[in-house]
């Protein structure tokens, strides 16, 4: 299938510092795509290139198979990490202004503004100045600014930072809804929990390069370390068995024991053995979290 966004071999240099070093990635249509990486890895540079704010020194960005131009920005919605609004503008006017800048007619922008304000319970704030709103409400207004013109591609830079859990959930619901309506979503974040929860694919960028790309489940499976959580009845601790497994530290809140299988040992062998000695209440494989994969990959890179 034709990727919706295709970044091909993009190189970008700032003042002798290489921000992007032959970066390529494919974002399928209708996908929620995570763009991960430590600070300064080059995520913002890449986003700015996709946004047409800056241009790559080499390489190109294709939208639906054809080179992207500045006119395509009306199909884009961008929520920067640093939130910015005109503080002196009224909420409604602000949303309509951004919508019209993105090419909407005034009537369309006004209609969409009403719809979105209602969805986020902000209707009564429509004629208030932005500066009168709480921080959380301002972020909702900024989110509406991003999606008002129904862009085909949405770029969110740390969308959940600064949101309380209730509002973060509401935002998540809206993001998934936009995806279901056909939008492709590019997500730049450090928040690995949200990556596991909503991203289907990711790219991990470190030191200006893509170091890991693919489907989230596949990545987690390919990074598994044969660790199994075992739950047993009674207070008797699990005895070590060097031939089959070693006990590894489990998270503090877990009531299960984590074991790492010895080389060449299958989970089946372990179940069989344990079943003979204990009453098993649980037995499941632990996949590495995206957090661990992220940290390990980045660390491994910096040791190279």
């Amino acid at each position: 299938m034709q990727p919706f966004i295709e970044v091909k071999d993009v190189v970008k240099q700032y003042d002798g510092h290489l921000a992007l070093d032959h970066v390529s990635l494919n974002v399928p249509r209708g996908c929620i795509y995570g763009l991960l990486g430590p600070n300064g890895a080059g995520k913002t540079s890449l986003i700015r290139i996709i946004n047409q704010i800056t241009h790559p020194d080499e390489g190109e960005v294709l939208l639906d198979g054809r080179p992207m131009t500045e006119d395509d920005v009306i199909h884009l919605g961008y929520l920067p990490e640093e939130r910015g609004l005109y503080k002196k503008m009224k909420v409604g006017e602000h949303i309509v202004y951004i919508g019209r800048l993105k090419g909407m007619t005034k009537a369309d922008a006004v209609a969409a503004m009403h719809e979105w304000l209602e969805r986020f319970d902000l209707t009564e704030w429509r004629d208030k100045k932005v500066e009168a709103l709480s921080k959380g409400m301002q972020q909702k207004v900024q989110f509406i600014n991003t999606v008002i013109h129904r862009p085909q591609l949405l770029i969110f830079d740390e969308p959940f930072s600064g949101f309380d859990p209730v509002n973060a959930d509401q935002l998540k619901v809206e993001i998934l809804r936009l995806r279901d309506e056909g939008a492709t979503i590019l997500f730049s974040t450090h928040n690995m929990e949200s990556v596991e929860e909503i991203c289907e694919q990711i790219s991990l960028i470190n030191h200006a390069r893509v170091v890991l790309e693919g489907n989230v489940d596949e990545i987690r499976h390919s990074h598994k370390q044969n660790i199994i959580a075992v739950g047993i009845e009674g207070k008797m601790p699990l005895a070590p068995d060097e031939a089959l497994y070693t006990i590894v530290p489990a998270p503090a809140d877990s009531r299960e024991t984590y074991v790492k299988l010895a080389d060449g040992v299958s989970a089946r062998d372990v179940i069989q053995r344990l079943n003979e000695r204990y009453t098993l209440t649980g037995f499941h494989e632990i996949l590495p979290s995206m957090h661990d994969i992220f940290v390990n990959t980045v660390k491994a890179q910096s040791h190279e």
Binding site: N51, Q52, I53, E70, V73, I74, L76, Y78, P80, E82, R83, G84, L85, Y86, K87, I98, L101, K102, Q142, N145, T146
Partner: peptide, 16 residues
């Protein structure tokens, strides 16, 4: 002002 409150990033992703 536009630069410090970062609105400029949103605007320049919509116009030149």
């Amino acid at each position: 002002e536009e630069k410090t409150n970062r609105i400029v990033e949103v605007i320049v992703s919509s116009c030149k």
